[in-house]
């Protein structure tokens, strides 16, 4: 049934996993739980009962400090999945482990504490409170916890400066542009120093230029903060720019989980192939995948193994036949020009 590339071991809630989902299901509709226990995971039978299986048998684990992107077309169940992970809605079946604790058995009070201190969420349509200023909006999660005014405002100012809105603290949401509003949303979600950061299509409501700008901002923030991030999008370019790992969803199921390079170079299903087909492989393939291990001759340019092939292209322009590759400062091998050209022209790596 599972077609992803995850090795069995990685599903265990090992130390590096912040959030783990096991066989997670969400079926919408009247009396869904009973119907699910009789019909099981048979999508056709569920549909015949007028039920919508929005998330089906999802297994995944999100590692500490990574950007985990969930992507899929509209209606594929992405939002439902994050809402299950934060237990905004109750799953029909399955488990969600956060730092090894089963969220589904946590009491309401425990959940409130976890959400207050460990989770942050950024919303597609910002969800700013219209009656509060920027400062009050960002301080709101702390206010709800009962943090003293001076402390919470100091923290909020810090966050506002972090997202580049210093000076606009007194403005109301409606006086800000969409991009600025989402910066406020980001600042607010960071105010409680969450361990796990959810972003549900945070940039979808923005126009392309602003989107690009906020993506850069986001990358800059993450390089400083090193949060564990679950990021939802339906934009593949965005995915490739941001993701450490990607889960591709279709009709509530996960088609494949892997690094951008994995998905482009080794699509597990036709759906993933169609999805990733339009992407120039050179943009995702890393030099590491083309390297011939061995000693690096003196005088060759050294490029990092993490660089994409497209980035490496420059180095061949002045007629070189090969370049050296280094990882963590140590030379590990060379990459030949023919291999790079073959990949750029669309052949297999």
């Amino acid at each position: 049934m599972r077609r992803g590339q995850i090795k069995p071991g990685s599903l265990m809630s090992d130390d590096s996993a912040t959030l783990v989902c096991r066989n997670l299901w969400k079926v919408f509709g009247a009396r869904a739980t009973e119907a699910f226990s009789t019909a099981g995971g048979d999508a056709a039978r569920l549909a015949a009962l007028g039920l919508v299986p929005a998330v089906r048998a999802v297994d995944l684990s999100v590692r500490r400090g990574e950007i985990f992107v969930i992507m899929g077309l509209s209606g594929s169940g992405k939002s439902t999945l994050v809402r299950l992970m934060s237990r905004l809605i109750e799953p029909t079946a399955g488990q969600v482990l956060f730092n090894g604790q089963d969220l589904l058995t946590a009491t309401e009070a425990e959940m409130t504490q976890i959400r207050r201190h460990k989770m942050g969420m950024v919303f597609q349509h910002f969800a700013l409170l219209p009656h509060l200023t920027v400062l009050e909006n960002v301080a709101f999660p702390l206010d709800v916890q009962g943090v003293a005014r001076a402390d919470r405002e100091a923290r909020a100012r810090e966050m506002i400066a972090l997202v580049g809105l210093a000076g606009r603290e007194g403005a109301y949401p409606r006086q800000l542009s969409g991009g600025q509003q989402q910066r406020v949303g980001i600042a607010r979600s960071l105010a409680v120093e969450p361990e796990l950061w959810f972003l549900d299509e945070p940039f979808s409501a923005l126009d392309p230029l602003i989107r690009r700008e906020l993506q850069d901002e986001f990358i800059r923030l993450q390089s400083r903060l090193q949060k564990t991030i679950i990021f939802i999008t339906h934009d593949f370019d965005e995915t490739i720019r941001l993701a450490d790992r990607i889960a591709i969803m279709k009709d509530g199921q996960i088609e494949q989980i892997g690094t951008p390079q994995d998905l482009v170079l080794h699509p597990a299903t036709d759906y993933v192939r169609a999805f990733t087909g339009a992407v120039a492989k050179a943009k995702v393939a890393r030099l590491a995948s083309l390297v011939t291990p061995g000693p690096v001759p003196e005088g060759l340019a050294l490029l990092p193994a993490r660089a994409t092939v497209a980035e490496a292209g420059q180095a061949f322009l002045d007629g070189q036949v090969q370049v050296g590759v280094e990882e963590n400062g140590r030379p590990i091998g060379t990459v030949a020009r023919e291999d790079v050209i073959r990949l750029l022209l669309g052949g297999e790596a």
Partner: peptide, 9 residues
């Protein structure tokens, strides 16, 4: 959802 996520009573 916002209210839930920031842990409102």
């Amino acid at each position: 959802d916002l209210a839930t996520m920031v842990g409102c009573t």
